[in-house]
Amino acid sequence: NAQRWLSIFGVTFQPTETVKLLLILVIATVFLRKGCGVRVQHWVLGFLFLTIALVFLQPDLGTALILGVIGVALFLTSGVGLSRLVRVFIWAFGLIILVATLIYFFHPDFFSAAKLGRFAFLDPFNLANLDASYQLRNGYYAIGSGGIFGTGLGGSIQKLGYLPEPHTDFIMTVI
């Protein structure tokens, strides 16, 4: 029941898209003006985890993951020392494991079959994942049948009924 789109004065938009841009601008500005000291890193991490938690509770797991990747990229490019980065990533990984474990024990239906089906890409040819990985497998077939040089622009056979939305989700397989 997540509501990800807002309509204000006839303009419809996704607030999380704005959050992505603002997250980059805020964290980059803080690192630029305040440096990469430990206190600044703690503030940035707190801000990052709060932002991710709010989006996660919406629930918009995909955008929360993207925000996490944006945060990691900002830390990697900020000039923070390697040993500090390793400690931060170990701490963050432990926190993620702890939160996932708590969610699993106190809200087990959170990990529904539909959500777990999104990890079908890890083994798309497993018989248990055939429905969840249908489009991914056909994308692999399209890329594989093209060989090294491809079949030519728009010459993909898989687009003819095998890929449900070839013009959007798997445009690379068509090209």
Rank of each mutant, 00 (worst) to 15 (best):
129 N>R: 06
126 N>H: 12
129 N>S: 10
90 I>K: 09
104 Y>H: 14
96 I>Q: 00
145 S>Q: 12
77 T>D: 13
146 G>F: 04
100 A>I: 06
95 L>A: 07
132 A>D: 07
120 A>R: 02
107 H>E: 13
73 A>F: 12
98 L>N: 11
80 V>T: 04
110 F>P: 00
96 I>L: 04
74 L>G: 01
109 D>K: 00
73 A>H: 12
79 G>T: 06
73 A>G: 09
111 F>G: 03
107 H>K: 05
87 R>M: 14
121 F>K: 14
77 T>C: 13
116 L>C: 04
137 R>W: 10
84 R>L: 10
146 G>M: 07
115 K>W: 15
104 Y>A: 13
120 A>C: 09
99 V>A: 14
69 V>F: 02
90 I>M: 12
142 A>M: 05
77 T>F: 12
71 G>Y: 07
94 G>H: 03
87 R>F: 15
65 L>A: 11
135 Q>Y: 07
68 G>M: 13
101 T>E: 10
64 A>Y: 02
76 L>Y: 04
99 V>I: 15
103 I>V: 15
146 G>E: 06
104 Y>F: 15
94 G>E: 07
130 L>N: 06
60 D>F: 00
131 D>N: 15
145 S>A: 12
78 S>L: 00
94 G>Q: 06
86 V>A: 11
144 G>P: 04
89 F>G: 09
91 W>V: 09
107 H>A: 10
70 I>M: 11
125 F>D: 15
79 G>C: 03
107 H>W: 08
118 R>T: 01
139 G>A: 07
126 N>A: 13
92 A>H: 06
131 D>R: 08
65 L>G: 10
89 F>N: 05
66 I>R: 04
141 Y>L: 09
143 I>T: 08
71 G>L: 14
81 G>I: 04
91 W>N: 10
105 F>Y: 12
111 F>L: 02
73 A>T: 08
66 I>E: 11
122 L>N: 02
68 G>E: 09
85 L>R: 02
87 R>P: 01
74 L>M: 11
104 Y>P: 08
132 A>R: 01
132 A>T: 03
62 G>V: 02
84 R>W: 08
79 G>I: 04
97 I>M: 13
120 A>G: 14
87 R>T: 14
144 G>A: 15
146 G>P: 05
110 F>H: 03
115 K>D: 11
133 S>W: 02
133 S>Y: 01
